[in-house]
Simulated scan of single mutants.
Amino acid sequence: MLLATPPATLTRPRARHSLRPGRPLPLGFLYGPLLLLAAWTTGSATGLLDPRFLSPPWNVVTTTVDLVADGRLTGHLLASVQRVALGLAFGIPAGVLLALASGLSRWGEALIDGPVQIKRAVPALALMPLLILWLGIGEGMKITVIALGVVVPVYIHTHNGLRGIDSRYVELAESVKLGRAAFVRAVVLPGALPGFLLGMRFAVTTAWLFLVVAELINSTSGIGYMMDLARTYGQTDVILVGIVLYGLLGLFSDAAVRLVEKRALSWRRTLAG
């Protein structure tokens, strides 16, 4: 008698692909930039990159040391960091408040969402002449430019987070008769947190982008001013110092928000977890 083959349902085929690629690499966000640095170093050392157009990395390091030694880089860096910090301090609460007003009220969405989308479509450079006329060329104008750039990503992603809250939680809150304040505290804010943190990642990098625009116009301090002055004198290595600084500041700002996101949302099972 032939033995019956086991039914196909009893054999579990091995998965060819895993949805969980394993533990995150330590300091994985640095691997790509280090690869770019290696390519830059190799191209400069082999002569593939003309030093007249792109200074080698060792010259950039030497220039950075010289700028730090005479105090110029430290002063410009502190000025830029202060502007970004103030822009974030004003832009983030404004974006959150607008998202809450729009996400929790149909009238709020009708009145707020359209103007925010218009601001999203208007380039920063198009606003500069108007802001200069209103606010002058001082620090207020620069901080306002950064804050306006920060508001949009915080609003959009927080608003999407609010719209994505599971309706079962809303029904549960209604069944236990939660008050408005308790509903916002227990349901709305935790539900919007993933969207808010994603918006924060865009906001911190956007802040540095808008800082470049602000500092290239009538500034007397900051990384952008240092780069513009170097352009006047043809100092390519100083310009590259500024570009590298902007890139590193954006990279580590994003990494800081990702760390907060990982801690705050540790309960979620994700592909990267």
Rank of each mutant, 00 (worst) to 15 (best):
M1F: 11
L2S: 15
A4D: 08
A4N: 10
L10W: 15
A15P: 03
R16T: 08
H17F: 15
G22D: 10
R23N: 00
L25F: 04
A38K: 12
A45N: 09
G47T: 12
G47W: 02
L49K: 09
L49E: 06
R52L: 11
V61F: 15
V61Y: 14
L67Y: 13
G71E: 11
T74N: 05
H76P: 00
A79R: 01
V81D: 04
V81Y: 06
V81M: 13
Q82A: 09
R83T: 02
A85V: 12
L88Y: 06
A89G: 15
A94W: 03
G95E: 03
V96H: 03
V96I: 15
L97P: 00
L98S: 08
A101P: 07
S105R: 08
R106L: 08
R106F: 05
E109K: 08
D113H: 14
Q117V: 04
Q117W: 13
A121C: 13
A121I: 07
V122F: 06
A126E: 14
M128H: 05
P129C: 05
L135T: 05
I137N: 04
I137M: 09
G138C: 07
I146A: 05
I146L: 04
L148E: 06
V151M: 09
V152S: 03
V152E: 09
I156Y: 01
T158R: 02
N160W: 07
R163E: 07
R163W: 01
G164M: 03
I165K: 04
D166C: 00
S167D: 02
R168A: 07
V170K: 15
G179N: 10
A182E: 15
F183M: 11
F183R: 15
G191D: 04
P194E: 04
F202D: 01
A203L: 03
V204Q: 08
V204Y: 07
V204N: 05
A207D: 01
L211T: 02
E215K: 07
L216E: 15
I217A: 06
T220C: 00
T220H: 11
I223R: 07
M227E: 02
A230Q: 10
Q235S: 12
T236C: 00
G242V: 07
L248A: 14
L248R: 03
G250N: 06
L259M: 12
V260D: 05
R263L: 14
